[in-house]
Nucleic acid binder design. Sequence first.
DNA 1: GTAGGGTTAG
Length: 419
Amino acid sequence: MALSANTPRTLINPNLINPIRIKIRNPKPPSFSNKRKPLQISSAQPQQQLSLLLNNSLNRKTPNSHLHLLCINAKLQEALKYLESMQQLQIPLDEDAAIAMVRLCEWKRAFEEGSKVYFYISNLSNSLSLRLGNALLGMFVRFGKLGDAWYVFGKMLERDVFSWNVLISGYAKKGFFDEALCLYHRMLWVGFKPDVYTFPCVLRTCGAVPNLERGKEIHVHVIRFGFEADVDVVNALMTMYVKCGDLPGARLLFDKMSRIDRISWNAIISGYFENGECLEGIRLFFKMREHRFDPDLMTMTSVISACESLGDERLGREIHGYVVITGMSADVWVCNSLIQIYSSFGCWETAEKVFDKMEWRDVVSWTAMISGYENNEFPDKAVDTYRMMEEQGFMPDEVTLASVLSAYAWKARYGDKAS
DNA sequence: GTAGGGTTAG
């Protein structure tokens, strides 16, 4: 859909808004369309190949095919050298090859190289096509380079909902929540219809501020655009209500959902935990099991922590049994939570058993154990564990050091329980 | 043809 003077000027004043913070996903490996017949690669070096190919003046497309193939094979450095040669010989880069290069740079998280490619592209033309513009937008947003993304967006001859979504998510990810919401309103203003990807991103901007009024306004949009039955959008809505502290609002949505997935359960369960209503959260966790939904690591880490808030050791042990049966006890986060709750219940020996069985540990595991000993009045054990941690090459952080210092202070004052 | 949403501790 192109921006034109005829696009309906609908909805909402674009001057609303406020900011949030969003996590960044790992990029997926690039997939390349292969409409063009790929060139057979010979064993010759790229430079030699290039001169061979260029000598064949009948087929000016060949260097682009070769470049495309280098990208398919993820040979970034070779592809860049090849591109430089093409540049020297003033061979135009075609759209497919350019997109392949951009995607490869994004996948390899190669910002410098991506910028070089963009520099080359922008020297060739003052405007960008939809496909190439979207690829560049995706790359710059992935690198957190909003200025470049914005510049690309401005150079695009045509934009689609993907272009808007990527830009909105970019601003939201960097914490520019006002700008992200403003962009969303501009998107509506120029006549684009939001899709299932737009709402989760926009709703998180309301949840992170938090701003319930704005969240409710987006909820109205969800209904108006007909997404109130979409499980992904409703999950995002629920999360927005949870983050804004409106648990009844979230629960109302949850109870009305015609289709529920694991994310819906996790969102509402952790929503109760986050808002201090651990009992109801646990009740829903059991209901989730009744409905034959398998909890995942996210569910279990939050449920284990809730047992600590509830001070329910028996439940903690039951949950521990459950994670062992389901194989989730191999997860570092799950184990760290278990060490934490057992230490808080005074069951330091059980915490120790969990710690000893761990195949992989991180600084949190070590610190949980050290502070577990320290809180249970075993400063010697805390110090010994700290030494072991150092011996095994783990870098203590400020939480670790605070626990060790506290253990030393305790020992100096009261001695060790064990001695 | 690409992207978004649930947990994130000691």
